[in-house]
């Protein structure tokens, strides 16, 4: 495992130098969603005893933790295709496990930062969520799933353009369909079955239930852990593919 701290520390140092820009970037989309969907459009919508804002914020947390964890793929690809820094890791005596662990931790760190930004942004809207251990466990699982997927795909793609395509075809549709902005159970049954295959659907469900103090479903957590483990395995076995 020697070296995973070096990989992680490098990403943290880069994050430190870009901190203000990264924070601003993390705040823009959630703030717009909160104002447009939550405050302007959603004021008259109720979900049982909860307002639409209370429904929306856990969904935004699920979505932002997914997109920020997955964004480590972009950083890896910039390092790989533009700056050639990936060669420094390839030439070092570190295992694939150390490299993947370092990058996945970096993705998780960015995602947690994004979650904190959303929680801070939601304060002025007067929404109080229950941020207990089950909430943080669901968030962590979601970050782990998408950071692992990001590292795996970043190793498999052959160009930065391919990476953008993956984001457009995997992450963007999931962000809107994974139970973030609307309850999945309002959709036709066939689409509910389809959406049950998306990890974000289970992340939204677990994060929302725990944040609103409702009973959580163990199956959501189990699916996230299993999916995360599969993606981590994919990442481990994809590192060698990045060599010529």
């Amino acid at each position: 495992m020697q070296g995973f701290i070096a990989v992680y520390l490098r990403e943290l140092l880069i994050l430190k130098y870009r901190f203000k820009r990264v924070l601003a970037g993390m705040a823009v989309s959630p703030l717009l969603y909160l104002i447009v969907f939550g405050y302007a459009l959603g004021r008259s919508i109720q979900f049982g005893e909860h307002s639409y804002l209370e429904f929306l914020i856990p969904g935004l947390i699920a979505m932002a933790s997914m997109t920020q964890a997955f964004s480590i793929a972009t950083d890896i690809n910039v390092a790989r295709f533009y700056w050639n820094i990936f060669e420094e890791f390839q030439a070092a005596p570190i295992s694939n496990l150390a490299y993947v662990t370092g990058e996945v931790l970096a993705g998780i760190t960015r995602a947690l930062l994004a979650v904190l930004v959303i929680l801070l942004l939601s304060l002025p809207f007067g929404v109080v969520l229950s941020l207990g251990p089950l909430f943080w466990l669901a968030v962590l699982c979601n970050c782990f799933v998408f950071a692992s997927l990001a590292v795996g795909l970043a190793m498999l793609v052959k160009s930065h353009a391919d990476q953008s395509l993956l984001t457009n075809f995997i992450i963007t549709p999931m962000a809107f369909l994974g139970g973030t902005f609307f309850p999945v159970d309002k959709l036709p049954e066939w689409s509910q079955i389809l959406l049950a295959f998306l990890p974000l659907t289970h992340a939204s469900s677990a994060i929302r239930a725990s944040a609103l103090g409702q009973p959580v479903q163990a199956l959501d957590y189990l699916i996230l852990v299993v999916t995360g483990a599969l993606f981590f395995w994919l990442a481990l076995h994809s590192v060698n593919q990045a060599r010529d």
Binding site: G3, I5, A6, V7, L9, R10, L13, I14, Y17, R18, W83, N84, I85, E87, E88, F89, A92, P93, I94
Partner: peptide, 19 residues
């Protein structure tokens, strides 16, 4: 293939940690 966003010392330090 240096980390252009990091300092000279940080580049050397990360390499040392990798090894």
């Amino acid at each position: 293939n240096l980390d252009s966003e990091l300092t000279v010392t940080e580049n050397l330090d990360i390499h040392g940690r990798l090894f």
